[in-house]
Design a protein around this nucleic acid. Sequence first.
DNA 1: TTGTAGGCGTTATCAG
DNA 2: CTGATAACGCCTACAA
Lengths: 338, 338
Amino acid sequence: MNIGEIARRAGVSRSTVSYALTGRRPVSEATRRRIQAIIDELGYRPNAAARALKEGRTRTIGLVVPPAGRRLTDLQLGFVASVVDAAARADLDVLLSPSGGEHERSFERVVTGRRVDGVIVMEIRLEDDRVTRLRHGGLPFVGIGRTADPGDMSWVDVDYDTLIARCVHHLADLGHRHVALVNRNADLVAAGYGPGHRAQEGFARAVAERGLHGTQVCCGDDARSGQACAGRLLAERPELTAIATINEAAVAGMYHALSLAGLAVPGDFSIAGVAARHWAESLHPPLTAADVPADELGAQAVELLIQRIADPATPHRHLLVAPPISLRGTTAPAPSRR
Amino acid sequence: MNIGEIARRAGVSRSTVSYALTGRRPVSEATRRRIQAIIDELGYRPNAAARALKEGRTRTIGLVVPPAGRRLTDLQLGFVASVVDAAARADLDVLLSPSGGEHERSFERVVTGRRVDGVIVMEIRLEDDRVTRLRHGGLPFVGIGRTADPGDMSWVDVDYDTLIARCVHHLADLGHRHVALVNRNADLVAAGYGPGHRAQEGFARAVAERGLHGTQVCCGDDARSGQACAGRLLAERPELTAIATINEAAVAGMYHALSLAGLAVPGDFSIAGVAARHWAESLHPPLTAADVPADELGAQAVELLIQRIADPATPHRHLLVAPPISLRGTTAPAPSRR
DNA sequence: TTGTAGGCGTTATCAG
DNA sequence: CTGATAACGCCTACAA
């Protein structure tokens, strides 16, 4: 079923059918109707590959996600959902590409085979060779996250540095003197995962400014690891009264470890962090946290990408968000003694 | 950068370059090497659209997911991850299409514009018009889930009927007489969501066989709703001592409601269900549940789809799994009295 | 208002 | 072993 077949049945030329479809040139009402009737009857749709070949664009964007083997956090899932949603609103399709590990070929195909008009890359590292390759390949792209030298790329990101610093200040204001930062998993941080490092910096800075005693640990991205990690912290640092964290998936486990240790949240121990709102609210108790607006960030990333595709020469744009901390009751004045 | 350019620089014809690339006809080692060197130097990759147009296939499969607005459960996320993974292993790309609601156009584009060679559809309803349209359009597809009359389509599915019945029998064996089924959200079940209905059937049958008192309720797919739902159940049915559920996302909330009511799990109250293993294990306490092998199901769905694409006339195949219930300690003998 | 013709980048058929 | 050439289905000057 192609445009020629429609033209034949309608008794017109292929170009007339094409123009009737795109409206880029006037077509008499009568023939337009006749053509439309046949199209409806046969359920014809233009072949996407042929159109892409002719127009030089695919009306598809790539979304490079962390390798499927590793579980996506609730926040990452939020990004995926909002990107797909925003793309659909702009009549763009989304091609998923797991990157890293064994999936080099997938990334290579998507990026270099002109399968997409542009790419959104998630979970950007401080030094990220996917970014290097995209730059080299000349394909428009936008990061959710940014590299160490983010001047010459477009991105949207969460200001983990500022947010974790704010958490620490908040805890310090409440009288906490011994606080810990629970980071994402060690492999990720070691690989140069931006939020992990920027959270460390913000934490160190705020701890220094307020003259606190700070500890930093990495922790697997799940409840189990959270429990083990918090248990270890409590054992090694009995003077600890508060945790700041960017590891939303581990928080439920931390709660559990605390309750096993006989510590009430927030009476005996405070926790504050950065998380997806949905997740923060569904925890028991709901977590005091800076709520990352994943919807907005995803939509903005698509917006930025659409602009770069339309005009690759346009200056790079950035969006760094630092949403306020929503108090939900997991922070309270430090206990007078333990 | 196209095949002609490579040919020009290598001093050969385009067809020779093409054959050197595909290996579909012998090429002398010398010229093959020369061509390859130039390809490597220029970073050439064949244009996917041109290839798709010529070959009549896109090397891409569509994955139709529930609308992005609604949150995916951990299990659904597992399906997405395993499908993407299995597709990447087969050198297939995955085009994501949110279906339902405002995203009709996306589904239509993917299905009818020859953008993909085949489709995997998630969250199939007993009567599902996406299935109807796919059938009508003649595009190969595989369901994760099945319709009410699943004979003439290929699918992989979880046997919720059997699994929930097993949960009930397990609870009955432990002496429970009053049990409730906590289903997925009411909208979904009302829309004919297969697992919801099949769970109801299995529950009703097992309850009847064992002469138990059963109740069924729907419950939003999140911890909050789980808490509200379990709270309501306990208030209205104080004689209740056990819950069977397919709503993994609500379980944490149920735990909370039970603990608020002063009921210990499993001492005073038992829960058993169907869930992703990862999720069941990360709950506190870990949930006794039939562990759905999302990885296997996703991989099998891709496998089935690849076969259907290769030969659309091949008979339909089905995979219905009923994994054993893993005892993790949320079920115990019914309390002698309450 | 409509038709003709050329080309997007590949692959495959037919010659050599 | 290699080259020329014709499609694949669509869009869009250029003509009429």
